[in-house]
Simulated scan of single mutants.
Amino acid sequence: MLVRRPAFALQHHCALWHVPFTVTAHISTQDAEGSWSYESQLDVRDEQQDGERVVWKPSVIHPELADHDGYTLKAVPTAPKTAVLSREGTVLNERDQPGLSQVIDQLEARHATRAGTPALDVRITPQFGDGESTTLAHVVKSKPGAIRTTIDPALQRAAESAVVQSSRASVVAVQPSTGEILAVANSAKGEMNPALEDVEAPGSVFEIVTSAALLEQRTVSPTTVMDRVSAAIGRGEVRLNVLNLASITATVKSGTFKQPLLVTADLVGADQTQAERPLSGRVAQQLRAIMNHNASQGTGAEVMAGSSGAFGSMAGLADQGTGQAAHGWFTAFNGDAAVASIAPSSGEGVANAGFITRAVLDADRRTHTPGSQSPPS
């Protein structure tokens, strides 16, 4: 709203009538709304002068408007202060959970207005010059909100501790029965969250996906499928991030894809992605058998030693070219937890990634017998 001062001179010998009035306005923005009411006064001359009886000045609009050339009047919503909480209600912050620093910022930006009540202020800014904005009224007071995430504090602590053993390592834990993300951690710091946003060639850990495709076609059996996947093990144009692999592993464990969630379902609403169809019971069972064999007698046996119950794993290397150390991947499930990790260019095969994955599994109360893995020396 723009208020301008008309050009006129006030004659002091003219009597003025002071007419008080009340202004009430309903103010609405996309994020907040409320009512604003205040008292003002209109001065009227007892005789017409220069064609005007009303003494017009900015203070008629609001008493705080001074005698300047013009103003811009705006209703300004302000996002509420928001606490990001774990699934248990404890506060998550960038100092104690550095692996969630980008996640916390993104959640606050995306869900703050839904978690709390934004403030709504009316402000004026001089139209000309460099004058600062002045708040005329606080129409709606901000109500702090809380965004409850799916992060499990125990798993997050374990994930943060495990990734520091290897440079550029990342790990994600997912609950297969719900799709909820239980932990996210990265040893590398920066604006991007590698575990959720970066992509790398998955190498032989992609055998989970190629095996599923072949088993669906009924052209192989669980005992012969690994002979057929050697030509398609995740090289070339195939790229995954750690969350993708954790979600794939969770799907094998539960038999149904569940949209990975970082916040409670009430904040996500109907935006969740649904799978066109679940894995057939036959294929899901065969994939779990393949991964259990890997964890018991294959490349994951050393890492998964001491596990009990329904568990399985898949380990893989992704070559990076001549003279470069391969990326090590390791993913596993046990109980109602699926964990995937990557240790890029670690030079330790799957050992580093395996240690990270097992450390997070052992911290989860949903799993069975903890192991005693140590990081590779």
Rank of each mutant, 00 (worst) to 15 (best):
V3F: 09
F8S: 13
H12Q: 12
H13Q: 12
H18I: 05
F21P: 03
A32R: 07
S40D: 08
D46F: 15
E52L: 15
W56H: 09
V60Q: 03
I61V: 15
D67E: 14
H68Q: 08
D69P: 04
T72D: 10
T72H: 09
A75V: 08
P77W: 00
T78A: 15
T78S: 15
E88Y: 00
Q97S: 15
P98S: 11
L100A: 02
D105V: 06
E108I: 11
T113G: 01
V122I: 13
L136V: 08
H138A: 09
V139E: 01
V140A: 10
D152P: 00
D152C: 06
P153F: 03
A154Y: 02
Q156N: 03
A162S: 14
A162V: 07
R168M: 15
V174F: 07
T178V: 10
I181M: 09
I181C: 04
A188S: 15
E191H: 06
I208G: 05
V209L: 10
T210N: 08
V220R: 10
P222Y: 07
P222R: 06
R228M: 15
R235T: 13
V242S: 01
V242W: 02
T251D: 06
T256S: 10
F257Q: 05
L261D: 06
L262K: 00
V263D: 00
T264P: 04
L267S: 04
L267P: 02
V268A: 14
A275G: 13
A275C: 07
E276S: 13
Q285A: 11
Q286F: 08
Q286I: 04
R288G: 09
I290Q: 07
H293I: 10
S296C: 05
T299W: 11
S308D: 14
A310F: 07
A325I: 05
A325C: 00
H327E: 00
G328M: 02
F330S: 03
F333P: 01
F333M: 06
G335E: 00
A337H: 02
S341K: 02
G347Q: 11
E348D: 13
G354L: 05
G354V: 02
D362Y: 01
A363Q: 01
R365G: 12
T367G: 12
P376M: 06
